[in-house]
Amino acid sequence: MPLVSVLTTSYNRADFISEAIESVLASTFEDFEYIIVDDRSTDDTYEIAKAYQTRDQRVRVYQNEKNLGDYPNRNQAASYAAGTYLKYLDSDDIMYPHCLDVMVRCMQKYPNAGLGLCAFSDVNAPFPSVETPRSGYLKNFMEIDLFGRAPGSAIIRRDAFDAVGGFTGKRQIGDHELWLMIARQYDVVRMPRDLVWDRQHEQKESLYDDAFKKAAMHLEIVVNAIMANDCPLTTSEKRAVGDQLRSSYNKQFIRELIRGRIKNAMLARKMVKMTRPLTRNAE
């Protein structure tokens, strides 16, 4: 059984997928399988990926019967995996040769952790370090953005992924949602950054019409996470998070009014109201 299942989901990435695949196969860590699931591409993506399957026995390529969409396809890829760890690599990104080696070493140092995330450095501890559910939530909501990481920045223990049900598929920012779900039940390992190159290009999918809509979606996920029955925060800590969020969005509301951006101001006001359940829950 491979220790790591590297998972790539693809849709119309003929211009980039070869580089993504070759970066995985060039890994200095060799105990992995590589699963590629094409979501009914209309270009040559599937054929390009399929050719690699004949060259390297670690590569397995599938194509869905119908287009599933981003996060449902990520779950589909995980369903084929046999590894202890799941490592996603987007079909237009590149994994550095040392990526898997670093991530696996970090996770094995903390065998109880369910998730590893490339994180901002901590002046109090070298990498790797570990956060408990409570310390991770406190750090994320009161200090730094710990969980706002793309799939390429993460490595996931397979049993933790299964325990929370994988990606919900209901939101466009399902990675952030999944990290919060896992972090409520498992320790999280903080790992060095820049192990994967996040390619920027004209074909890069844009999930949001504007930053405010993105922020509103994130806030909905945050509120649900803190309101969850298994949230590791105390009542007073939940109230503190709610107060901090409410203050931030109130300031944003005022700034947008002053600038005459009425639509943005109304959305900021809506986000202020979205924080109310945190206070009601705390009280």
Rank of each mutant, 00 (worst) to 15 (best):
D209T: 14
L25P: 06
E177I: 02
L86V: 05
Q185G: 07
M274E: 08
R60S: 11
R13M: 03
M266G: 03
R184F: 04
K109V: 08
I254K: 15
S18K: 05
H98Y: 15
G148F: 05
V222T: 09
P151N: 15
A282Y: 06
I226C: 05
K87E: 00
A215G: 02
A49H: 06
Y71N: 03
L219R: 05
L115Q: 08
V196C: 04
A26M: 06
F127K: 05
I36W: 12
K238C: 00
E33L: 10
Y71T: 00
A119D: 11
P2E: 07
R193L: 03
I94C: 03
A215T: 09
S23L: 15
N112W: 00
K87S: 00
R246T: 12
Y46A: 12
S41W: 09
L207S: 10
Q53C: 11
R158I: 02
C99P: 01
V222D: 10
R13E: 05
L233S: 04
C106G: 02
L138W: 09
F32T: 10
P111L: 04
S135H: 10
P2L: 06
H218T: 08
D44F: 04
T84H: 13
A183Y: 10
I254C: 04
N12I: 01
Q244F: 00
C99W: 01
E47K: 02
A268K: 04
N73W: 05
Q76D: 06
N112I: 00
I182S: 05
F212V: 13
M227F: 01
S41R: 14
F212P: 03
R261S: 00
K50A: 11
K214R: 14
A49Y: 01
R246A: 12
L89S: 06
W179K: 11
E22I: 13
V272K: 07
Y110A: 05
G136K: 04
F141V: 07
L146A: 15
I226K: 02
T45N: 12
A282N: 01
Y46G: 07
H98L: 14
N75K: 10
E19N: 15
P192L: 15
D243T: 14
S79L: 10
V123S: 08
G260A: 08
V188Y: 07
G165S: 08
G116K: 10
G165T: 09
Y80P: 12
Y88D: 06
G166N: 01
Y88W: 14
M271C: 03
T45F: 09
D122K: 13
G148R: 09
N67V: 02
F120C: 15
S91V: 05
E33S: 12
Y71D: 00
A81N: 06
V37S: 14
S121Q: 14
R261T: 01
N75A: 09
F147Y: 15
R13S: 00
K273P: 01
V61M: 02
E30W: 03
S41A: 08
P97Q: 07
L233T: 01
I35F: 12
